Simulated assay, not measured.
Amino acid sequence: MLSSTIPAPPRPPYRVMPLTEEQAAALCEWRYEAPFTFYQWLSWADMQAQEREFGDPAIRREQYAAVLDADDAFIGFAQFFPLAGVTRLGLGLRPDLCGRGAGLGFVQAIVREAIRRAPGNEIDLEVHAWNERAIAVYERAGFVVSDHYELATARGSEQILCMVYPDGRVQFPSQ
Rank of each mutant, 00 (worst) to 15 (best):
Pro57Asp: 12
Pro57Val: 03
Ile59Asp: 10
Arg60Val: 05
Arg61Met: 05
Arg61Pro: 12
Glu62Arg: 04
Glu62His: 14
Gln63Glu: 10
Tyr64Ala: 04
Ala65Thr: 03
Ala66Met: 03
Ala66Ser: 12
Ala66Asn: 00
Leu68Ala: 08
Leu68Ser: 07
Leu68Ile: 10
Asp69Ala: 01
Asp69Ser: 08
Asp69Thr: 07
Asp69Glu: 10
Ala70Lys: 08
Ala70Glu: 06
Ala70Leu: 12
Asp71Tyr: 06
Asp72Phe: 11
Phe74Gly: 00
Ile75Glu: 03
Ile75Leu: 00
Ile75Tyr: 08
Gly76Ser: 11
Phe77Pro: 01
Phe77Cys: 10
Phe77Asp: 04
Ala78Glu: 13
Gln79Trp: 00
Phe81His: 15
Pro82Gln: 12
Pro82Gly: 10
Pro82Asn: 03
Leu83Arg: 11
Gly85Cys: 09
Val86Met: 10
Thr87Asn: 05
Thr87Gln: 08
Thr87Ser: 10
Arg88Ala: 09
Arg88Trp: 09
Leu89Asp: 06
Gly90Glu: 03
Gly90Thr: 02
Leu91Ser: 01
Arg94Val: 11
Pro95Tyr: 01
Pro95Ala: 10
Cys98Gly: 04
Gly99Phe: 11
Ala102Thr: 11
Gly103Ile: 09
Gly105Glu: 00
Gly105Gln: 02
Val107Glu: 02
Val107Leu: 04
Val107Asn: 01
Gln108Glu: 07
Ala109Glu: 01
Ala109Gln: 01
Ile110Val: 08
Ile110Glu: 08
Ile110Thr: 09
Val111Cys: 08
Val111Gln: 06
Val111Arg: 03
Glu113Pro: 10
Glu113Gly: 11
Ala114Leu: 01
Ala114Phe: 05
Ala114Tyr: 01
Ile115Glu: 00
Arg116Phe: 05
Arg116Leu: 04
Arg117Asn: 09
Ala118Thr: 11
Asn121Leu: 06
Glu122Ala: 15
Glu122Pro: 05
Glu122Met: 15
Ile123His: 06
Ile123Phe: 03
Ile123Gly: 05
Ile123Gln: 08
Asp124Asn: 15
Val127Thr: 01
Val127Glu: 00
His128Tyr: 15
Ala129Asp: 14
Asn131Asp: 14
Ile135Met: 10
Ile135Tyr: 04
Ile135Trp: 05
Ala136Gln: 03
Glu139Gly: 11
